[in-house]
Design a protein around this nucleic acid. Structure first.
Lengths: 227, 227
DNA sequence: CCTACCGATCGGTAGG
DNA sequence: CCTACCGATCGGTAGG
């Protein structure tokens, strides 16, 4: 299954393309961990020899770097897209809430790559570079949180730094259980995350407050925000 | 630093005890990952030979098993402690909220071991056993959530299963950034987590509602819930 | 607690 | 001469 994606008719053996090798590599890295996955494991999974893997990719670490770039590029775009809304009359609170939802959608759309990113510990220059890019993203989000707190739209009895950590810890924790293709669409997941983090799980006043018009049980059919 | 903890005077070289070796092993496993940490790395860190490590511990995996047991025993105790409060007239909502706070305190008290637990992927029988024990704990918490939703105390527009995942995903994500000994005490951290997850980050009505009497800026001196 | 090793496997590469 | 591989093996290192 999943051979030669999209390429026109070629001579020689069908074989795999780089993209397919990368998808399988990311899947295996997430199942067993990057270090615990050998190139031989990947070759076995693809049904080819270990040497054949190196025909497609120059090193195991290149696979990791490609996956981390995919995740970081997506997340960076999500943040910057929300920043551009600053030209509108959107408040920091509104931009923050939109950024959280967009981050969830990116996470859902690139779940394997984002999962890998969130497990990186800085064991190599490639991983350390990814951690640096993550910190830049986190800092942009922290700025939004500070603005929203300063504007009085987020509770002032919690340190803005703690709010940032809790908020994006919650988003990041989704990779541990969310699986696309199941009963929960990415849009509903995004709405559920912001419902809990901004409005809280306690029921009583949930409907009374200024919660967005998104019905969580039956989301709007016409998908919002076509990024 | 940190040699022979508590043991009486011994003959022979001072050396390390099993507990110290375990603490350093857990720290290294968390820094670089279990698979990426060799026994030689641990030996180097302790300043002894690789063989000397095997004098204290029979295998690398035994160190992992001991760490996972510590985390699982603590978390299980936290859950069962909350269940015993059922004899009181406490509602499911109140017991759930207390369980979340106690889980945060356990996480803070056994942060390295819990961190390791949350990174386990089931690569070996030891890891698979830990995952099984985790699922048992998660299910007990899911029962509490379902009861609280059924009682009408948690918002009904979110699937109880999703609520459970979000709630404990948030708690688990603390291992990624919380560091004991810093400005945030475990009690304040626990209060911050329940403040966001149950009451929400939005400021306006936070004080109006039935939030507990815990002041997050200056927590009650007499620590609540002396488990 | 060390030196000296083992069976095996690691990521990566040779020629064809 | 190409793409797509194979069987075998490189120098080092893993847990034990």
């Amino acid at each position: 299954m999943s051979e030669s994606a999209g390429a026109p008719a070629r001579r020689g053996r069908p074989g795999y393309d780089q993209e397919t090798v990368l998808r399988r590599a990311i899947a295996l890295f997430n199942e067993r961990g990057y270090d615990a996955t050998s190139v031989a494991d990947l070759a076995r999974d693809l049904g080819i020899s270990k040497s054949a893997v190196f025909h497609h990719v120059s090193s195991k670490e290149d696979l990791l770097a490609a996956a981390l770039d995919e995740a970081l590029d997506g997340l960076s775009a999500a943040i910057d897209a929300a920043a551009e809304h600053a030209e509108d009359d959107a408040t920091a609170y509104q931009r923050l809430r939109a950024t959280v939802e967009e981050s969830v959608r990116i996470l859902a759309a690139h779940l394997p790559a984002v999962t890998l990113l969130l497990r990186v510990r800085g064991n190599s220059p490639v991983e350390q570079d990814a951690l640096r890019r993550r910190r830049v993203i986190d800092e942009k989000l922290a700025v939004l949180v500070r603005e929203a707190v300063a504007a009085g739209d987020l509770r002032a009895d919690l340190d803005p730094e703690v709010i940032s950590r809790l908020l994006f810890g919650t988003v990041n924790s989704l990779v541990e259980w969310y699986r696309p293709g199941g009963p929960i669409t990415p849009d509903r997941l995004a709405a559920a995350v912001t419902a809990m983090t901004f409005d809280g799980l306690t029921s009583t006043v949930a409907e009374v407050r200024g919660a967005p018009a998104t019905s969580l049980e039956a989301p709007a059919a016409g998908a919002p925000d076509p990024t």
